[in-house]
Amino acid sequence: MYSDRSIEVTDLTVAYRDKPVLWDIDLNVPSGLLMAIVGPNGAGKTTLIKAMLGLVRAAAGQTLIYGKPYAEQRRLVGYVPQRGSVDWDFPSSVLDVVMMGRYGALGWIRRPGRRERELAFAALDKVKMRDFADRQISQLSGGQQQRVFLARALVQDAQIYFMDEPFQGVDATTERAIVTLLQELRAAGKTVIVVHHDLQTVPEYFDWVTLLNVRKIASGPVNDVFTEENLRLAYGGRVSFLSRANGSAPETLAS
């Protein structure tokens, strides 16, 4: 049986050359919700995701996915890395890239076949990119590239999705498409962890938020945690713009 906690992080500490990047993080994420990880630049947001996925080595601590270490639960996890982390001039079509999401399930040596193509097309439908299936990936706009990455994660058919800055530099259409997709995922009972930059949209898009600045500042339901005081703790003095902001969610900010 699954516990109701999808992710359980205990005492996670990561250091690059003895400089702590993440300091003793404890985190419990209930399943079936959308969580944003926010914090200033250099707060360790991406590192937190990568450490949970076992992509960077932790100096201490561990991550449990539905009660078991990540290595045993890989099939339950989908990952959307930052768009800028790959070379988009790579000789590959959109369909090719999306099918890469099935490689893990295929295991060694077996090649993707018809089933994988069908899954990939279905995922491309969900992000409204089916017409682009045969396009070379360098011919896509930034938003389209992002949607291809989302489709690649969707074919992983996971329970938990980790997304690193999916809203970074995308057009309005793509932003709406991603939001819709996130809501569909939540409706299907999936958990989605998103590294997010835009504080304004946090209350609108997410249920749960973790404020991070090397240490965990706070983590919990947006309404409880996304307060001005916590934001000031996370961002230092640099959060003043928030009180001046047009207030997409003034009630949560009025602490």
Binding site: D11, T13, A15, D18, P20, W23, D24, A59, A60
Partner: peptide, 14 residues
């Protein structure tokens, strides 16, 4: 040296 320092810091902050 830093490994031990760091571990002690980790323990103390924990």
């Amino acid at each position: 040296r830093q490994r031990w320092d760091f571990a002690q810091q980790m323990l103390a902050t924990h």
